[in-house]
């Protein structure tokens, strides 16, 4: 068991610190109560230079093996944002810094930074938005050490659901290189798009249904 260590910053009030810390600990406890789950996923790709039909896959999580996605179709599986139980976030020791409150998805939520204390952690800093009433994660902005930043938005069908029914993972994708000669007549290539390579915002939306969750007894 990893123990979260909290640091008191002078400019923070004791009450706000304990409130955020407490909320995060509750979330962590809920997440860590999940031993494994399987769920059906519909993947919708919302990237402007990719047109793809909604794909079906099944996703499974196991405490030891992590997340796995399988499908009979060709699927683009985002490398980040599938960690619904936030195991990466809680793997190593971290500190939290309260960042006030904000409205997310129309809900009052508390905002906090989570900063890992261990260099092995895969992220540099995460900003979490936790619902005050429902006590669960609504949004996470995660800055990884090596693979850029991404944002996860989570939507829940029912109040008592532990895991979301819809997850939107937003991240930056580099524009594809288009070899002019192939697969398109020269006249059709959008030359402007061709020049402006660089990064584009992309989003993958996962619709999750038929959870089968195995909790730790």
């Amino acid at each position: 068991m990893k123990v979260g260590i909290s640091v008191i910053f002078l400019f923070l009030t004791a009450s706000s610190w304990s409130q955020t810390n407490e909320a995060l600990e509750v979330l962590r406890a809920r997440m860590e109560s999940i031993n494994a789950f399987t769920v059906n996923v519909e993947l919708e790709t919302a990237i402007d230079f990719i047109q793809m039909p909604v794909k079906r896959a099944s996703m499974s999580y196991d405490r030891d093996q992590g997340v796995q996605v399988t499908s009979d179709d060709f699927v683009l599986i985002p490398k980040k944002g599938l960690d619904l139980v936030m195991s990466e976030l809680f793997r190593y020791d971290y500190i939290t810094v309260p960042r006030g409150e904000e409205q997310v998805q129309g809900l009052e939520s508390m905002v906090m930074n989570v900063i890992p204390e261990d260099k092995r952690a895969d992220y540099a800093i995460a900003t979490l938005y936790l619902s005050k009433q429902k006590n669960r994660l609504l949004q996470a902005d995660i800055q990884t050490r090596k693979e850029g930043a991404y944002t996860v938005n989570m939507f829940y069908r029912k109040d008592e659901d532990i895991l979301p029914s819809r997850v939107e993972v937003s991240f930056e994708v580099e524009k594809v290189k288009i070899p002019i000669r192939y697969l398109a007549r020269e006249g059709e290539v959008d030359k402007e798009a061709l020049k402006s390579e660089g990064a584009k915002k992309g989003k993958v939306i996962l619709y999750l249904s038929d959870y089968d969750i195995e909790l730790i007894k």
Binding site: I50, A57, V69, T70, S71, D72, D73, F74, V75, L76, I77, P78, K79, K80, E147, F171, E172, V173, E174, K175, V176, K177, I178, P179, Y182, L183, G202
Partner: peptide, 20 residues
């Protein structure tokens, strides 16, 4: 080679499953 060229950048953000 087309697959390599087109999908090179996408590989940074995605795992591919299935044979194109």
């Amino acid at each position: 080679s087309l697959l390599d060229i087109f999908l090179e950048n996408l590989k940074q953000s995605f795992h591919f499953q299935g044979e194109l």
